[in-house]
């Protein structure tokens, strides 16, 4: 840091000021007595009270947390398999299409993804012919339970598809960095590929899985556009609540909510960063020791 020229230091300061000034202003005005958000009316904690008494907000937050948990978990499962296939399986028929499909959700505009998924669900719904009087066979019942109404399940599927792309990229990158010799050695010793995957690969890429899960959780918790297409009348998520209250006018409860979110996120990121660094250092030492032992 000390070697850095003054101009660079100044630029870094400006850059971080740009990143943090908006967040600081959110936090400061959450303690404002006045409803007019940016006109200072004295220090107050009343918006935090209002936030915790707002039933719509709490219900929306509850639903969002539930969906984010489900989506992150399924995205980690599917994304890990996808990343593993891309990093370790070499070429197979349809490989390039598969590679394209895994990364495309990251850049594809969400309005397109949202609309197309909605049209899929609506088409499924009308071709299944869901009705309360005639539930139909097992297949129809299952289909109608999942797609008959837009709501939690359709949002879950949408978020999972978006998040698994990020997990796949993280896992793929981590696997590419890794020495394959551990996996090869286990395989040579007669270990079944599935066992190798669960006993060797998964523990070694665990940091990528943790960051993939956390990233998916925040992406899902934060998503407005996909949810706008995939949610039904009874399912309002937190971003939808925020979006509609922000559009109505100044809402200090949103500032209070933002402060709570920022505090939780900061604590979480700092702790997980510490844990990941120490875990990585420990593993690197162990690997070094193992390889040093091998060559002696």
């Amino acid at each position: 840091m000390n070697k850095m020229p003054t101009a660079n230091k100044l630029f870094m300061l400006l850059g971080f000021f740009f990143l943090y000034a908006p967040i600081a202003s959110l936090i400061i005005y959450s303690f404002n007595e006045s409803r007019l958000v940016t006109v200072w009316g004295g220090f107050s904690l009343k918006w935090y009270g209002e936030m915790f008494n707002n039933d719509d907000l709490l219900a929306a937050a509850g639903l969002s947390f539930k969906i984010a948990f489900l989506a992150a978990t399924l995205a980690v499962v599917l994304g890990t398999v996808a990343g593993f296939v891309l990093a370790r399986f070499g070429a197979f028929r349809g490989h390039s299409l598969f590679a394209g499909l895994t990364t495309a959700p990251m850049v594809m505009p969400e309005v397109i993804v949202g609309l197309s998924m909605l049209l899929l669900f609506v088409s499924l719904q009308s071709s299944l012919g869901c009705s309360a009087d005639d539930p139909g066979g097992l297949f129809t019942r299952l289909g109608c339970w999942a797609f008959g109404e837009r709501g939690m399940i359709t949002i879950w599927i949408g978020h999972t598809t978006l998040c698994m792309a990020y997990v796949a990229v993280l896992v793929q990158a981590r696997l590419k960095e890794l020495d394959r010799s551990l996996e090869d050695a286990a395989m040579d010793l007669g270990c079944h590929p599935f066992k190798v995957f669960f006993v060797i690969t998964i523990p070694v890429i665990a940091p990528a899985l943790v960051s993939g899960w956390l990233l998916s959780f925040t992406l899902s918790l934060d998503d407005y556009v996909l949810t706008a297409f995939l949610s039904g009348p009874g399912s309002t998520t937190l971003p939808q609540w925020i979006f509609s209250s922000v559009r109505i006018g100044p809402t200090p409860e949103v500032n209070a909510l933002a402060t709570v979110v920022i505090v939780i996120v900061t604590v979480f990121v700092v702790i997980s960063n510490r844990l990941m660094l120490s875990a990585q250092a420990k593993r690197d030492r162990a690997m070094q020791a193992a390889f040093a032992g091998k060559t002696e």
Binding site: I23, L26, Y29, L221, Y224, P239, I242, V270, N273
Partner: peptide, 22 residues
């Protein structure tokens, strides 16, 4: 790097909302 990422982990909508106030 962590300092760059922290704002990114906080809600996207809230970061947009912050700019309205500014």
């Amino acid at each position: 790097l962590m300092l760059v990422m922290i704002p990114f982990w906080t809600s996207f909508l809230l970061r947009v909302y912050a700019w309205i106030g500014i």
